[in-house]
Structure formats: C-alpha cells, structure tokens
Amino acid sequence: MRWPWQQLREAGIVGMNARNGHYIARYNERRLYPLVDDKLQTKRLAVEAGISVPELYGTLYTEHDVRALEGLLAPHPNFVIKPAHGAGGEGIVVVRGRQGQDYLRASGAPITLGALSHHVSNILSGMFSLGGLPDQAMIEYCVDFDPVFAPITHHGVPDIRTLVFRGVPVCAMVRLPTRESDGKANLHQGAVGAGIDLHSGRTVGGVHHNYPVSHHPDTGAVLADFPIPHWPRLLELAARCYELAPLGYLGVDVVLDRRYGPLVLELNARPGLSIQLANGRGIGPVLQRVAALPQIPEDPLDRIRITVPDFDAARAAAEAPGAQVDAELAREFYF
C-alpha cells in the first residue's frame, strides 16, 4: 500500500503550495505582474512585438466615456466587452449581432444598451478587478472562432492554454465550453479541459470537474486524438510571449480565429493546476528539468526544442502543401 502523497509525487503532480512557493514566488517577479494583469498593456506590448491579438476597438476610462458607448459600438456587429484587470474570465460580455435596438449576447439572449452601459459602469468601478480598484473597459474584436472545434464544444469560444516555464512551453490543453459553463472556457465553471500532446498537437483525453472524461458531456464527441490546427504556430506564439512579459511561470491563452489564425487572448501569471489532470500527468518532472537548465536559449524556437525535440519536422509537416488539406479532412471527419 502506497500513501496518496507518494502516488501524487510519483505522478509528478504539483500542488497549489508548491506552485506558489517553488514556481510563482521564485520565477515571477512581482513588478512584472501589471504587464499581464492589465490586458490593455499586454495588448500594446503584443502589438509592438508583432504577436497577433484581437483588435482593440476602443477603451472606456471614465463614467463620462460610457455615453460614447453606442457610437463606439455602431460600426461593429460583433464585439467583446471585458475589464482590463479582470480575473478568471469574470465580467466578459460577448455580443454577436443585433435585434432591433438591442444587442444579442453569445447565448442568444438580447441585452439592451442600458444594461450594457451598466455593465461597463460596473467594470469601471472595479467590480471585476483584483482588489476592487477602478478599472478600464476594453471593447475588442469578437473572435470568429474556427469551427474546427465545433464537434467538441458547446457554444462559446474554446481556447488553448499553454503553460510556458522560463520561456519553454511545457504543457498545453484546450478548454472546451459546455452547456454547464455557459459558453465560458473556464474549468472552474464546468468547461472541459483536454490535454494536448506537445509533439503531435493532438488531444489526449479530457477532464471535467477534476475527473477524467473521454467524451464531451454535451456533444458526446470523443475528446482524444483531435488534431489542433496550426499547432507549430501556436507553440511558437506561446513561447514568444515570454519576451513580451518575462514571467517565468506563465499561462498563455490562445484562440483560433477563422480568418486570422491563432490570436493571443490573454496572459496569466497564476495559471491553474487542472492542466495536469487534462493531460493525465503531473508537470513536476518537466518543470524540474527546465528549472535545472543553467541557461535558457534566447531564440523562442530553440526553447521549444527543449521540450519538443522534433519541432522542426512537425513544423515542416504542418507547412507542407498537403497539410492544410489534412486539417480540412480532419474537420470533415469530425463533422
């Protein structure tokens, strides 16, 4: 009989205290937090670094600006309103289209301009920001998500979370909204997480409410062995975010847009631990291996090669002429 903690340690599971004490406290400098906690700043830095992000339509800073909301929204049928300092996906409103005077939320429910304005006021007063400090409201491009994930998702936008340690992608999962999570890609709210094999870019089963699942609870589709399109580009994007915000322990959230491909949605300085369950293995060993490296290469591609030795082959395959057709085929297959 082996004790649970021995088994967890052997599985390489990193607990909350270890994450905070060994990784976040040691590798994430506090002065860098504002770079990722303030999504406006993240976006500005990303644009400067040439990392693709959803376009910013406008920012509301004060209660007075809220009056300009209607004019600001007029040219955009689809948009997202989010707090610049939000955490855990709170305070995000997704609008897809209009119905008469009203706007239509992603769920299909109409929302009036008054309700939107009130929501913006709540954001500005700091209702969703860490510590309740006054905040800004961002209005940005609403990702027209690649339908590739349609069979394994229920409404909402799935996103791909990559854990980047010292600039090296160490672990990844795709977070799939469910009926229960109400279109949100947040595992705490009931979304499904499916781990991704870093080499092949294919999913490896999933987790729902901290328990392994093999099928999506709403669509019933098999979660494993699903190829993530643009995988090498996605890895590269995640690795390059380390230059943007040199936080040693960083979560990079990427969405796949139908037109623009992978877009970095946000960075997270305190990424959660469920990614281990989604992948069915702990991140302890790979974190220790990367932590033991005396030096980290400056080139993002070299960093990827630390955990994905055959990255060049994978990239060549992905960029080869027939690759996109393969992806199309895979999509057909899943539909």
Partner: peptide, 22 residues
C-alpha cells in the same frame, strides 16, 4: 510559509491520479 506539500483538499482534487491504483 515554506510548506510546499499537498493540501488535504488536493488529495480529493487529484483523486483520479491515485484512487483505484493503490
């Protein structure tokens, strides 16, 4: 403040890793 071991609640959270293997 330097305790980096597992929390009791994490044995439940990560139960799929150790349950049924003991």
């Amino acid at each position: 403040g330097r305790y980096t071991g597992y929390r009791l609640s994490e044995y439940w959270r990560f139960r799929s890793v150790w349950m049924g293997k003991g």
